[in-house]
Structures are given as C-alpha cells and as structure tokens.
Design a protein around this nucleic acid. Structure first.
Lengths: 191, 191
DNA sequence: GGTTAAGCACACAGGGCGGTGTACTTAGCA
DNA sequence: TGCTAAGTACACCGCCCTGTGTGCTTAACC
C-alpha cells in the first residue's frame, strides 16, 4: 500500500540514500552556499530522513568534505579530452566552460569554512593543483617554453574570472580569455 | 573612582562607541569572516555594550554594509598616489601590496552574504569598479593603447591572486605580477 | 548644579542549526 | 518464513546567534 515512487532499479525510494544526499549537496551547497544550507533542508531535498543522513556521514563537516572530494570535474576535464582541438585551442576552451558555473565551489568553500585545516580545504587545494597540472600538460603539448608557469598563470586567470564574476555579477571570463590568448602567444615560440 | 581607561582625548572609554565598533569590525570580520563573528564577540572587542551597538546600527546587516562602505582603501590608493614611481611602476606596485591582506574583503563578503541584493554587495561592486577605474587612469597615463581594457585586466589579476592565495594558502601575487608585466609591455607601444 | 544624551550591565526571548533517541517499517535474502 | 540491514518519522536537546527590555551610571555642557 506504499505510495513511494520506485526508482529505475525497481527499489524503494529509500534505497541509495547516500547518493541522493551527495546529489542534493551538489545542488544546494552551490546554489545557497554551505553555511546557508541546513541539514533539515538538505535531507528534505534528498528525500532522506535525517537519521539516515547521520548514519552515512558522522557530521556535516564530513559531508562537506565528501561533497568537495567527489565534485564532478567532468566539466573541466571534458575540455582537456577534446581531441578535435589543438592544444592551444584546448587551453583557450577552458575559459568558455566555467561561465555557466556561478563560482568555483572550492573558492566558496575556502571562504565559508574559513579553516585551512578543514579536510575539505585540503581537497580544494588538491583540485586547484590538479587543474593547474592539467593546464601545464596541455601547455607542454602546445610547445610552451615554461609549461608549469603557463599552467599556473592560466589557472590564476580562471580563478580571477570566477571571483570577479561573483562579485560584479557580470561575466568576467571573456576578459580572462583575452589575457590567456596573449600569454599563450607569448609563451609558444612558433605561434 | 572609575577605573576605566582614558583615551587620548581624555574622554571616558565609552565615548565614540561607533568608531570603536567599526574598528573592531575591520579586524574581526577580516580575520574570522562575517558569519563567524558574533555580535557578542564584536562588542566585547570594541569595549561596547551590545545595547549601544544596536543603537548605532539597527542590525548586523547594516553594520556589515557600513564596514564595507567605509573599508579603508588607503592601502591601494597609496600606491596610485606615489609620485616617485612612473605610471608603469605604479601599475606593477599594485601587486606588491595585497600580499599582506589575506583576501579582498569584498570577495569574502560576496561569498558569505550570498545575496547580490544585499546593500553590502552593492558597495563591493562599487569598490571593484573604482579600483579598475584607477588602474585604467594610470594605464592611460602610462600611454596604453586601450587603458580601460588594461585596467580591467589588471583588476582581474589582483582578484585572481587574492582568491588563489586564499585557497592554496600560498602567495599567488608574484604570478599575477608576472602576467601584469607581460600585459603592460604588450599594451604600451613605446615600452 | 542640573539636565540631557550617551553608554553600561544583564537578562532573556525567539529562532535556527547540528545532532540524537526511539520506535517503527520495509526490502532482500537464506 | 524469519532474520537482518537499510530507511523512516518525529520529537527532542543543547548551543549559539541576532535582537530587545529595563534600569542604572556617567560625561559633557550650559
């Protein structure tokens, strides 16, 4: 006599609570921020009882850490995997994507959590370094003089565009892309 | 028989509460963040009773707005006023200063308040635009081809360095300064 | 010296949040 | 069919936070 909806697996709504919690986190933490999203609201959105949530994650901090660790990087990695683009085009394409995303969740998390020792802050650093490394790889592929430097510079541009977009409420990625074009042309001997 | 300390004006500690509140805000909001700083703590630091604080500011939001509106921009404006430097040197000097400041308080406020309609968010936008305008002025003075564009670009670099410094817990301003040097040299015909 | 504005001390209301306790229900499996 | 793991519903605790009410004290100025 249950009126609960059945998922694609044919299981009861309740099954797979952990994934639904993480899914709701992705949405709510980004839209509203971490501190402004209470566990009550999050559980309601995930269609999960609060008790269950605290059986999967011992605390909200742990949930936040997992949310950042598991942050879906397909948006950015998708750019690096596009074989139809030249390395130079791939570097520039990195500035087209994030315009849709309001602000890099790692920057927001670093501000909101405000504790460099927080496990989530560690994941944020890891992610930032990983992005810079991938940019450096592509820069090397493009034949840049100093790929590490260029990768770090491009990563800084992305973060700057993200932060400025957030504060000014206006897309700053075109400006960043223009700078990137200059840097890339300066760093690649042949052009 | 009062044991209260006397200030330089000879007045009782209690006088000038508003200024002390704003002063404590400057320190605590920056060090701990806005949301993590309670009014109790702030009043204690300002040596002001809570009741008095709420007579000067009807709400914490109003205090936050005033804190941002009154944010002391001498650090940055001091750079622009240095007549001993060439315009080009002044543009580059803008990347030496903010290393001491943990993160531009406006970026932090935009994340913490999370509401573009918040009056403080308006002040944040005003400040960002003002900085970009001053950079553009100096760029024009330096003979740049497109001063507005260069000013916007340099402002983005500053924000990027600030954000990245915060997340990575490592000074990113040298990287930003290196990019700035490239942009400036590219934008000024004579060099 | 008396008036007035500014400030103080302190308790407390009201609400939200993180987190827990308890008793019940369901799905899957042997 | 009966056991177990997963989930549910819901009340509840304690904490902290913003904001207020009340009565008292002090400084400044005429």
């Amino acid at each position: 006599m249950t009126e609960l909806e059945k998922g694609p697996t044919g299981r009861r709504r309740g099954r797979g609570a952990r994934e639904r919690i993480l899914g709701a986190s992705q949405q709510l933490f980004r839209e509203q921020g971490i501190n402004r999203t209470g566990m009550d609201q999050l559980c309601a959105a995930a269609e999960v009882s609060k008790r269950t949530a605290y059986q999967h994650f011992t605390s909200k901090d742990e949930l936040v850490a997992e949310y950042l660790r598991r942050f879906d990087p397909t948006v950015l990695s998708g750019v690096f995997d596009r074989t139809d683009l030249t390395p130079r085009e791939r570097l520039l394409a990195a500035f087209d994507i994030p315009a849709t995303t309001p602000l890099c969740p790692y920057i927001a998390a670093a501000v909101e959590l405000h504790d460099p020792q927080h496990p989530a802050s560690q994941y944020a650093r890891d992610y930032k370094k990983a992005v810079a490394a991938r940019l450096a790889d592509t820069a090397r592929e493009a034949g840049a003089d100093d790929p590490e430097q260029l990768g770090e510079q491009l990563a800084l541009l992305i973060d700057g565009a993200a932060a400025r977009t957030r504060v000014l409420d206006a897309d700053a990625f075109p400006t960043a892309a223009a700078i990137a074009a200059v840097l890339i042309d300066n760093a690649i001997p042949a052009g």
